[in-house]
């Protein structure tokens, strides 16, 4: 069903960790039956785990399955082998973002812009975060999808345009320290680092 690809790198560090976690998978499909988003996925969660165990990184990255995980933890709760399935989907998102896979650009930007506002202010400023996201997407039509909700929120003064005046706690020091620690770790184990 899946072609082998010479670009598959079986020694990819990040995938190795997920692979080791998922080895006890018995392919029962409880995860698929439990997943509220399975119908919209091109590969069911069960098939995704099989690909991970086989180390088929190219096939994994071509699928949208892990990006459609909404962190509901139903599969994790029900897995008869007690495997960390939701966290594995999360880790696959991380690999896709680190590889800058173009098909996940929008999701990656959403997460990155979110974390940039956290880094700068310590807390999320929703309007600023969405503005940064729209700007980074460079798609002039995207804001219109959110416009009706945005106008409602503005009307309720739940979000404000521009930069708030409330105090902020920048978290650059913590972000930099974590990045340095991860870089050092990547240097010693050959793990793929996250941006």
């Amino acid at each position: 069903m899946f072609e082998t690809d010479k670009n598959d790198n079986p020694t990819d560090g990040s995938l190795n960790v997920i692979q080791a976690n998922l080895r006890p998978c018995i392919q029962c499909g409880t995860c698929t039956a439990s997943c509220p988003n399975a119908e919209q996925m091109d590969l069911t969660p069960r098939k995704m785990w099989r690909l991970v165990i086989l180390g088929r990184l190219t096939d994994i990255m071509a699928s949208k399955t892990f990006i459609l995980c909404s962190d509901c933890y139903t599969c994790t709760l029900r897995c008869p082998r007690g495997l960390p399935l939701t966290e594995s989907m999360e880790a696959l998102k991380g690999i896709a973002f680190a590889r800058q896979e173009t098909q996940f650009r929008n999701s990656r930007l959403f997460y990155e812009k979110f974390m940039q506002t956290v880094r700068r202010y310590g807390r999320v400023r929703e309007m600023e975060f969405m503005t940064r996201y729209f700007t980074a997407m460079k798609n002039p039509l995207t804001p219109f999808r959110f416009a009706p909700l945005g106008i409602k929120l503005l009307g309720k003064r739940k979000v404000t345009i521009g930069f708030g005046k409330s105090s902020a706690t920048p978290l650059d020091a913590l972000f930099d320290k974590v990045a340095a620690m991860e870089q050092a770790q990547a240097g010693t184990t050959g793990k793929e680092k996250t941006p």
Binding site: F97, M115, F175, T194
Partner: peptide, 9 residues
């Protein structure tokens, strides 16, 4: 948003 970018973060 943080976890997929960095678990430690």
């Amino acid at each position: 948003a943080a976890a997929p970018l960095s678990h430690l973060l």
